[in-house]
Write a protein that binds this DNA or RNA. Structure first.
Length: 115
DNA sequence: TTGCTGACCGACG
DNA sequence: CCGTCGGCCAGCA
């Protein structure tokens, strides 16, 4: 085939499907998702995919994906000023200065917990 | 086709 | 701890 094999069902879709598996009250990181998809260096693509997740037609809990330090680096892409923070707090997480407290205790690593 | 941009990360000084 | 830089790669002008 020439261009790309049809498109769709590619990286974006796989990011969405995995993100939907993040349990409520847990969080993961862009690089953890990228690693799970076999493209460790594509953490930026994960963020980009989540940016377009509204067009997927499905509910994608994009607020459960933060950067490797547990900082809400994507908060500016949600409606309002504190939407991402409020969503996470409603699931029981505590956030201070855009930083999830006890990040490691709530971290969900698909590479370890998903078989 | 080239060049630039990103919800990032790891290495380096 | 902080700032900077290169790598990453899909989409768009």
């Amino acid at each position: 085939m020439s261009m790309k094999d049809k498109n769709d069902d590619g990286f974006f879709t796989r990011v969405y499907e995995l993100t939907r598996k993040i349990p409520q009250g847990r969080v993961t990181s862009y690089v953890a998702i990228a690693r799970f998809l076999g493209s460790a260096g594509s953490a930026r693509m994960v963020g980009w995919a989540l940016h377009h997740s509204e067009n997927s037609g499905f509910y994608i809990p994009a607020h459960r994906v933060v950067n490797r330090s547990g900082i809400l680096s994507g908060k500016h892409h949600f409606p309002g000023q504190n939407m991402m923070k409020e969503l996470l707090e409603s699931e029981g997480l505590v956030i201070e200065d855009d930083q999830i407290l006890n990040f490691e205790d709530h971290f969900w690593d698909p590479n370890k917990e998903l078989i």
